[in-house]
C-alpha cells in the first residue's frame, strides 16, 4: 500500500476513474432510505446521498448531483468502502479517513482506494470537497443509531 501511495500517477487514476465512472451514482428515491442533501453557499458541490441502514448494518449507499472531481470521487469511493459494513466498522473507517485528511496517524489498509485523498489538504479549501459525501454518511449513521436501528 505504501508504494502505491507514493505514486501520484496511480492515485490520480483512482480519482479520475471514480469521477468519470462514479459508482452507485443513481438515487433510489425509496423512502426506507435515509437521505441527505449536501450543499453550501461557499462551495459549488451540490449532492444528494441516500443510505439504507438496517440492523446496524449499511445495506446500500447511493448518490447523485453536481460536484467537482474530488467530491464526486471521494463520495463514490466512500459508497463502495462502507457498503455492507456494520455501523461499528463504518465508524472506524470514517474515523481513519478524517485522521488521514487531518494529517494524523491512520490505518492505510482500512481505507483502500480512499488513500488517494491523503494529500488533499495541499489545497486547503478542497478538504470540504473530499469530506462532503462522508459527512452525509456520518449524519445518516447518527440518525439511524438515534432511531435504534
Amino acid at each position: 500500500m505504501s508504494e502505491l501511495m507514493n505514486d501520484p500517477m496511480i492515485l490520480r487514476q483512482i480519482i479520475m476513474d471514480h469521477y468519470q465512472y462514479p459508482r452507485n451514482h443513481e438515487l433510489t428515491h425509496d423512502d426506507t432510505y435515509y437521505t441527505r442533501h449536501m450543499a453550501s453557499d461557499s462551495c459549488i458541490d451540490d449532492i444528494h446521498v441516500e443510505a439504507k441502514i438496517q440492523n446496524h448494518k449499511i445495506e446500500d449507499i447511493r448518490f447523485d448531483g453536481v460536484a467537482c472531481t474530488i467530491a464526486t470521487a471521494s463520495t463514490s469511493i466512500m459508497s463502495e468502502l462502507l457498503m455492507g459494513k456494520t455501523i461499528d466498522e463504518a465508524n472506524h473507517i470514517i474515523e481513519n479517513y478524517h485522521a488521514m485528511i487531518d494529517g494524523k496517524d491512520y490505518d492505510e489498509d482500512l481505507l483502500e482506494e480512499a488513500v488517494a485523498f491523503h494529500t488533499v489538504g495541499k489545497q486547503a479549501n478542497r478538504i470540504k470537497c473530499a469530506t462532503i459525501g462522508w459527512k452525509a454518511m456520518e449524519e445518516m449513521i447518527a440518525e439511524s443509531e438515534k432511531n435504534g436501528k
Binding site: 501520484p8 492515485l11 490520480r12 480519482i15 479520475m16 472531481t69 474530488i70 485523498f117 494529500t119 488533499v120 495541499k122 489545497q123 478542497r126
Partner: peptide, 10 residues
C-alpha cells in the same frame, strides 16, 4: 487540463 488540475493534490 484535468490531469494538471488533479496533480495539484500530489
Amino acid at each position: 487540463t484535468i490531469e494538471n488540475c488533479l496533480n495539484v493534490f500530489f
